[in-house]
Design a protein around this nucleic acid. Structure first.
Length: 597
DNA sequence: AGCCCACGGGG
DNA sequence: GTGTACGTGGGCT
């Protein structure tokens, strides 16, 4: 048995002999090795919680009626109250969707809980593991090609396969440096938008943060970064080889979920080129996420930078040029898509320009990735779900998965997602917004600005606003009562959400102090990204109360928070007037005023 | 005013 | 895969 240390990049599970095998994809961390590693764990089982009518009868009924692995009585908190549940352990993750309606419909079953938590997410939470951080594993390395083959892993020159035997545990670790490779394709499309059935790929540009900058193409060029290949099929084969050689942890592109990778898949299918890009030798895959696809390469996290930009920047448009200008303040020239075929056909200088622009797009994506990905990386380390997933989550979803992990840590059962009818019910209702005072028209001089630091998070903490502290009646001494509607929240104990926001803000203050004291510029930068990530999370946590599809939705909480917010800002404006400041405009957590003698 | 539906990015 | 985006803005009724 060996012990290995790795950066956890991704996770999934496969089925072997009707059993689920969790696969942890990582990168080995020691002096001589930088190889991809896949750790196999057969020891984890799926489970759900059942809310019984009668505890004993319900347990009996489940044992009698269903083919499950284990049925046991457990006590866990439900919104702070200890309650009896039955934990039902199943044989296979897919038994959960198969059996859950059957379980719910048993006469002795009142409700079921935690029945929609994907297996790999459950694994990360229950084992306390965090992607983008280090993990130590004990197990046996599988060397023989036959054994690898049994695990559905094609023989691959550098990937290490390990069967988990002993312990697996998280390690406190620094922010990992990742190898990033970006790609961008150009297509010959003389008529309208590219059609993968007939328009060939003419260039694949690649750029890494390790110094690689090259363009693969079927055209010849005197430019030294251009590598000419005989055919489009050869170009795709060479692309796969370069990815294996470069062995990146991260593959990035711009709109690559919906353009580059689907196009590469289509062309490779037509030309019969295998796209075994994964560290397990598996082919490029696509996951349906709603209506949009996400391109997936096992063991190398594919991140579409376009999605990241839509999340973090507020722009009118999100073209690569617009985003680059916003982030770097520099203009970037572009060849309009419908003119690319002309540059290609013209050859000579025009073709050279096309080569340069194509490479520039890939290089730009690498630059943007290096600047913007650390925040997502840090959020991954906090939320504790795969980087691939976090890169595609809304902040609301991040909050939810963070809370789901915290619920597990605190022995709380997770609330169910709203049913379709609950959802449409909630959609109609809205919490009253923040206070807005229309601006006083005119040109104002001597303007001062007052604002509250993290107004909503502060209110949640100071008024203990949480679904588990909300009560219908209460001794006024023992609760906080909101203005206007008079919602009541117990002063004690600390609610689930307030205590978590409290910890986040506390941790943020700690990081900011460390940042100020640090002399190392790189460390300062990392600490800054970390405190920014915590700020984002704390600020968006208010949203869980007001967004209709959330598990911890509670309109009363959202309404109470904004009511206190309006109360605070109005009172502060009145105070300011006493001191001679005349407010001219206010919005939610701050106001502008002019000073008058 | 309210509802429906298309759209984003990419070439 | 213990799954099925999302928010917006324009056109139309």
């Amino acid at each position: 048995m060996e012990t290995k240390r790795m950066v956890l990049l991704d996770i999934d599970y496969i089925t072997k002999g009707e059993k689920a095998v969790v696969r942890l994809f990582g990168r080995e961390k020691n002096e001589k090795e930088e190889n991809p590693i896949i750790v196999l764990d057969r020891g984890f089982k799926p489970y759900i919680y059942v809310v019984p009518h009668d505890l004993d009868k319900c347990q009996e009924q489940i044992v009698e009626e269903l083919d499950v692995l284990q049925v046991e009585k457990v006590k866990i908190k439900d919104l702070g109250q200890k309650k009896d549940f039955i934990k039902v352990t199943l044989n296979h993750p897919q038994d959960v969707p198969k059996l859950r309606d059957k379980i719910r419909d048993l006469p002795e079953v009142k409700d079921i809980r935690e029945h929609d938590i994907p297996f790999y997410r459950r694994y990360l939470i229950d084992k306390g593991l965090f992607p983008m951080a280090e993990v130590e594993v004990q197990g046996n390395v599988i060397n023989s090609p036959e054994m690898k083959d049994i695990q559905d892993i094609q023989t691959n020159t550098t990937t290490c396969i390990m069967e988990l035997e002993g312990e697996i545990h998280p390690m406190s670790s620094d922010f990992p440096d990742l190898n990033i490779l970006s790609l961008d394709i150009e297509v010959y499309n003389p008529k309208g938008m590219p059609n993968s059935e007939k328009d060939p790929i003419i260039m694949i540009s690649l750029s890494s943060n390790q110094g690689l900058q090259m363009v693969l193409s079927t055209a010849e060029s005197p430019l030294d970064f251009v590598e000419t290949v005989e055919s489009e099929a050869e170009m795709l084969r060479r692309f796969v080889d370069i990815v294996k050689e470069e062995n990146p942890d991260l593959l990035i592109g711009y709109n690559s979920d919906n353009f580059d990778f689907p196009y590469i898949r289509d062309r490779a299918a037509i030309l019969d080129v295998p796209l075994n890009l994964g560290t397990d030798g598996s082919s490029l895959k696509f996951m349906k996420r709603g209506f949009a696809n996400a391109a997936l390469v096992k063991g190398r996290v594919h991140v579409d930078i376009y999605l990241i930009m839509r999340r973090y920047l507020h722009l009118d448009r999100y073209t690569l040029e617009r985003v680059y200008l916003e982030l770097f303040g520099k203009e970037k020239h572009d060849i309009p898509g419908d003119e690319i075929h002309r540059y290609w056909t013209a050859g000579g200088e025009k073709l050279e320009t096309l080569f340069r622009y194509s490479l520039d797009d890939a290089v730009t994506v690498t630059e943007i990735g290096e600047k913007m990905l650390p925040l997502t990386q840090e959020l991954t380390r906090i939320v504790g779900q795969p980087f691939f997933d976090v890169a595609r989550m809304t902040t609301g979803q991040m909050v939810e998965w963070y809370l789901i992990r915290k619920a597990y840590e605190q022995g709380e059962v997770v609330p169910n997602k709203p049913s379709a009818s609950q959802y449409s019910n909630r959609r109609g209702k809205r919490a009253t917004g923040g206070y807005v005072k229309d601006p006083v028209k005119g040109l104002h001089e001597n303007i001062v600005y007052f604002d509250f630091r993290s107004l909503y998070p502060s209110i949640i903490i100071s008024k203990n606003v949480s679904p588990d502290t909300l009560v219908n009646e209460c001794d006024p001494e023992k609760c906080h009562i909101s203005p206007e509607r008079g919602y009541m929240f117990l002063k004690e104990p600390a609610g689930f959400v307030p205590s978590i926001i409290g910890n986040i803000l506390h941790e943020r203050v700690r990081l900011k102090t460390m940042m100020k004291e640090s002399k190392d510029e790189k460390e300062k930068k990392i600490l800054n990204v970390q405190q920014e990530a915590l700020k984002r999370l704390a600020n968006s946590m208010y949203g869980v109360y007001g967004y209709s599809r959330f598990r911890w939705y509670r309109l009363e909480c959202a309404d109470a928070i904004t009511a206190w917010g309006r109360d605070y800002i109005k009172k502060t404006m009145v105070k300011a007037e006493d001191f001679g400041f005349k407010p001219v405009y206010a919005d939610t957590d701050g106001f502008y005023a002019v000073y008058q003698d």
